[in-house]
């Protein structure tokens, strides 16, 4: 077993023994049940409205909106999970004396970080995959159609959560556990708010606000990935415009450039985290 896998296994074992995964599983099932109840209730209420029936003018809007809601919830919960899994990975565990016996072994500090990142990303990414998949299946089962690219929403959401995970690891190599958790979650909120402000700015042609939103998207690309995911759900035409101005953040495709930028961003965060960890005296 490689050193990275040994460290990752250790972190995953902790998540299992400390019942983190059990709690996440139970609450995820509860959330899924809530989503199911919401979908059933909504379908019941919409059955009498002609424009929402098969072939109706607003038919595509309902599953798209529901999946948009599910995407927001999944991203939020996945990000919270990532932050709690990774917030104490470096400085926090160093302060507790857990890291020193491990990195004195011929394990590079980069390998230690890779192991912690692998464990946190596996759990948080896996969570998004399962929850998004379940939401899409539920929506498809209860409504007659899905947005054409509904399944392609999942990859950007997974990568968005991986970005949050890597960001948390980077901050955790600089700050204590609590400070890391608070700062990343606040950055997460700021990113989503910036996305909303960007949509408002574009609607009113407020260029400065738009520039600020774009800059935040570069600094925190999980927000751009979320908007890219929403874009994949958006129906075309005027309905699409309606969804884009919805309350959960504007839809905007990122294209290939977003993926390339995100890849470099992830690598940059990892390199910075390793650099900071290697420089620190333990």
């Amino acid at each position: 077993m490689s050193d990275t896998l040994v460290i990752a296994r250790l972190a995953l074992q902790e998540a299992v023994r400390r019942r983190v995964l059990t709690v996440v599983g139970v609450l995820t099932i509860a959330s899924g049940a809530l989503y199911l109840v919401g979908c059933i209730t909504l379908r019941h209420h919409l059955e009498g409205l002609a424009q929402f029936k098969r072939g109706g003018q607003l038919e595509p809007l309902v599953p798209a909106t529901l999946l948009g809601l599910a995407s927001f919830g999944t991203l939020f919960l996945g990000s919270v999970l990532a932050v709690f899994l990774a917030a104490g990975a470096v400085k926090g565990d160093v302060d507790r004396g857990l890291v020193q016996p491990l990195v004195v072994r011929p394990v590079g500090r980069g390998v230690y970080l890779a192991g912690r990142a692998l464990a946190a990303m596996t759990v948080s990414g896996g969570f998004v995959l399962v929850v998004s998949g379940a939401a899409t299946i539920t929506t498809r089962a209860l409504f007659s159609s899905l947005p054409p690219k509904a399944w392609t929403v999942i990859p950007p959401l997974i990568v968005a959560v991986l970005v949050v995970t890597m960001l948390t690891l980077l901050v955790s190599s600089l700050l204590s556990t609590v400070a890391t958790g608070i700062s990343v979650l606040m950055a997460y909120g700021a990113g989503l708010i910036a996305g909303l402000l960007g949509e408002i700015a574009r609607a009113f042609s407020a260029h400065t606000l738009s520039d600020i939103a774009n800059t935040v998207s570069y600094l925190l690309p999980f927000e751009a990935l979320y908007r890219d995911a929403l874009q994949r759900l958006s129906p075309g035409g005027s309905l699409g415009q309606l969804v884009q101005l919805g309350p959960l953040g504007g839809a905007q495709g990122g294209g290939v450039g977003l993926w390339i930028y995100t890849l470099f961003y992830l690598c940059g965060c990892a390199a910075l985290a390793v650099w900071a960890f290697r420089r620190s005296d333990l």
Binding site: M1, D3, Q13, R96
Partner: peptide, 28 residues
Amino acid sequence: VGYLAELFRFPGWATAQEVLVTHQRLAR
């Protein structure tokens, strides 16, 4: 090197055997 720090902690959830297994794997 074998090292025992002045202030150290092993994961509380792990057994003594599991702690040693981890270190055997990492010690090469």
